[in-house]
Amino acid sequence: MNLSELEAREARALEERAPEPRRASGSPILALENVSLAFGGVKALSDVSFDVREHEIRAIIGPNGAGKSSLLNVINGVYRPQQGRIAFRGEVRSHMEPHRAARLGIARTFQSLALFKGMTVLENILAGRNLMMKRNLLLQALRIGPALTEEIAHRKRVEEIIDFLEIPHVRKTVVGRLPYGLQKRVDLGRALAMEPKVLLLDEPMAGMNIEEKQDMSRFILDVNDEFGTTIVLIEHDMGVVMDLSDRVVVLDYGRKIADGTPDEVRSSQAVIDAYLGVKH
């Protein structure tokens, strides 16, 4: 993919974008079965099951503290659930390990920015491709053979991502000095660099203004359309969720209270109660 292709593709994407949500109908790529997670005595997730179909955009919503981030952490192995199973591309496990999740093609962005603050944009995104590089100490130290050729080959792919996210002007800036909106893009870029099958986005638009949200929405749709990446998304902005997602799962107090298309979820009494509050 070069620059002109990217531009043409963007134009095409803008033209073709249908106003109503698309329906993805792939087979499940990822499924959680009866997952429960607790910290000490505090239950973060109780008996949650749901699946994600190939190529869809799946949103997870719910009030603060509903267990949304914990769910993502279970999927990519940062937390180990006490009960339940995770199936990814047919393989069933009781829990995931972070590096295995990375190897299997699950990438992730973070709610509170978790970039490598002391590294440049380029280095951050290149780090996302570390898994694909040979890390022979001696070759790296001498910078010969694959240590050199890989570095250049991967740099090329990273530059494409940088162009795609429209951040070429800051590629050599240390990430800690970038404004928040751009940091969010770098976070996405680092995840994209892994060329994931499934991309987990934890509040990618939190704290953004309308314009930034539009940009980010466009990036997410493009990733989904062009690379065929399945996306699991946590977001608070209901407008964004309803526009982007194919199916929505709703959590409250660590339990799943609704699951379905945006319209179905919107009209669910349980969801309305959870958001507006009812006497329990």
């Binding site: 990519n76 940062v78 972070p98 590096h99 999740a101 990375a102 190897r103 990438a107 992730r108 973070f110 978790a114 970039l115 490598f116 603050k117 002391g118 590294m119 280095e123 290149l126 780090a127 996302g128 570390n130 898994l131 890390r135 680092r190 995840a191 892994m194």
Partner: peptide
């Protein structure tokens, strides 16, 4: 890069493998 990633944010480093 793997050293610096571990230094700056170890959880995120693990998540990218």
């Amino acid at each position: 890069r793997s050293w610096m990633a571990t230094r700056d944010m170890d959880v995120a480093a693990e998540v990218i493998g």
